[in-house]
Design a protein around this nucleic acid. Structure first.
Lengths: 345, 345
DNA sequence: CTGTTAGCGCATTCAG
DNA sequence: CTGAATGCGCTAACAG
């Protein structure tokens, strides 16, 4: 074996006794090449187990074939499901996906965009709520804008403020309203909401849709009926615990967690406290991540087409930026399961 | 704005009135540069919002800063948790992670390795069972071997056969045995196992550890007490349904699913059939993915240090290949929760 | 310390 | 149809 660290196209060309250019041509299928030469190149490449240097290809002007996906947390089922959708269509287009998790650190998010930009990724997909923070928004814009000027595609799931970019919007506001309607229809009149941090647009939208709809039906949600917590299973667990410190008679009959993940934590907190669901309290979530139908009781929620969300952002990025920032709205639907029932009180 | 698609180092250098080399030096912090020059370069770079072309950097011999992680399914909590661990240490080392999902297609797995090779990723991490298939093993070896000759690092979680590479081994065999012991201690004597495809080494190890331990205690598992199904939630669901078609009196008192994900499906199947857990049948899983403690009842399982598994493979790859293929064994422990109890029959 | 220069591996002109 | 030559953007010698 050679001491040479990498087999290069030149090695292949030499081994096949053809020119560098010819070797390049057959391996890229651009122009037709005499059959015997082609065969020699192909077998030489196989023989040496040649792998083109993507960096050199990219540098020389070839295409890039890689897209970057940035989300908060790879192990959150919500993002995982969306990422799955992205990968599905990326894969069928021969694209390699670089999935990054920011662990909810805005600084890291910017850093990742920067790295992706350096990699000349052909597209950057932002999955997850925008940080409602001017400073970071500016920092992101400073990275994204030059990236796009350089021909990079950018698309996002559930963002709107600040940067204008192609976006896939799940129906957060409308979905929450619809869910509120369904819950009211069951007869509930006293609610509590387990909310995430209000800096996140997703939280704001869902919260707003829910409370507004309640108000339209004469049910007002007091400020202290909205319990804010981390946007995680632990957050939901903790918020529910907090709720349960109240005197039993002043507890709501129905709890809405702004995400399924939070609802899962809440369900566990309720179970640990011996509160039966939906016997004493009904619980509803949002997203319909796969696992919620396996809970006991299965969770009532607003079902978002998670995988499709991912598939569509990838599509948006693939079909190039249209005239104005495009927005694709994806509808969802209320799914009533056994975690909600008519109130007994 | 320029028509120039990308701002290059040369643009920065010119704008700062220094040489290309100087600009490169300050941006890389290699050598010290006179303060005023440094400042000019830095501000010029910011001004133009310069982003280094990673491809050019890589080509010129600079470092790569990207690692590829290949798993079967990004949305499987088991892989997600491990990926999380990988990302944590990758991130703290300034590495970008490319996460790929193969959707359990061996061909795609090979294709991804090939792409990663082309990208000159500094490391490739294989997460998940090896395909017990000679042909694919050979194909993988054909990609991996030249990659490593070229200086690429390769490490894996739970692989052993075939390719020799640095590996992190969860204690599949021993863990399953330990779990068997715990279940026997509860008084169970009639078991069924919900198993994945036996081509997967993980399945084989867990199955073997479990059945051998039972045998050592005088409990034999008949061939038809091992129900084979897909390695997914659906597989577990379906296998449990199949089990329930048997006459009640010939049902086992305890069911062991080789993964938590399968156990989740099984739990739902049992609930749907009105079989109480652990009242009528105890259920145990393996892995301890985060969500299992939120199930009702919470799942007894063998807890693997998932995030650590990921962190350690990344470490292995980072610390360079030692003399012989290194193997790190990570212990786990039985976690008894409420899905298992003493048998009543 | 700073500037000049030579490749890194490949796609692509441009001649032949 | 094929081969020789150019440059992508950058780093790492190499001189000054």
């Amino acid at each position: 074996m050679k001491a040479r660290p990498h087999v290069t196209l030149e090695d292949v060309a030499r081994s096949a006794s053809v020119s560098l250019a010819t070797a390049s041509r057959v391996l890229n299928g651009t122009t037709s090449v005499r059959t015997d030469l082609r065969d020699r190149v192909v077998s030489a490449a196989a023989e040496l187990s040649y792998a083109p240097n993507a960096h050199a290809q990219a540098l020389a002007g070839g295409t890039h074939r890689t897209v970057g996906v940035i989300c908060h947390d790879v192990s959150d089922p919500y993002f995982a499901a969306i990422a799955n959708g992205v990968m599905r269509v990326a894969d069928s287009n021969g694209l390699l996906v670089m999935l990054a998790g920011t662990f909810r650190d805005p600084g890291r998010e910017v850093a990742y965009v920067s790295m992706l930009r350096a990699q000349r990724a052909s597209a950057i997909l932002l999955i997850g709520s925008a940080f409602e923070d001017r400073a970071w928004e500016r920092a992101m814009a400073a990275e994204l804008e030059p990236y796009r000027r350089g021909g990079g595609q950018v698309a996002a799931v559930s963002r709107h403020r600040g940067l204008k970019m192609d976006t896939v919007q799940p129906d957060n506001r409308g979905g929450a309203a619809e869910l509120a309607r369904a819950l009211l229809a069951l007869g509930h009149k006293r609610f509590a909401v387990l909310s995430g941090p209000r800096r996140l647009s997703t939280v704001v939208d869902r919260l707003d849709g829910f409370t507004t709809e309640l108000a339209d039906h004469g049910v007002t949600l007091r400020e202290d009926d909205v319990l804010e917590a981390a946007f995680t299973r632990e957050g939901g667990y903790e918020a529910a615990k907090r709720l349960l410190t109240r005197p039993r008679r002043s507890l709501p009959t129905c709890v809405f967690a702004v995400t399924d993940v939070m609802a899962i934590g809440a369900l566990t907190a309720l179970r640990e406290a011996g509160v039966s669901v939906p016997g004493q309290i009904s619980v509803a979530g949002f997203d319909d991540i796969p696992v919620v139908r396996d809970l006991t009781p299965p969770l009532t929620t607003f079902a978002l087409p998670l995988e499709q969300l991912g598939a569509r952002v990838m599509d948006l990025a693939l079909t190039g930026s249209g005239p104005r920032p495009r927005t694709v709205r994806l509808p969802g639907k209320v799914v009533l399961r056994e975690s909600t029932a008519r109130p007994r009180r």
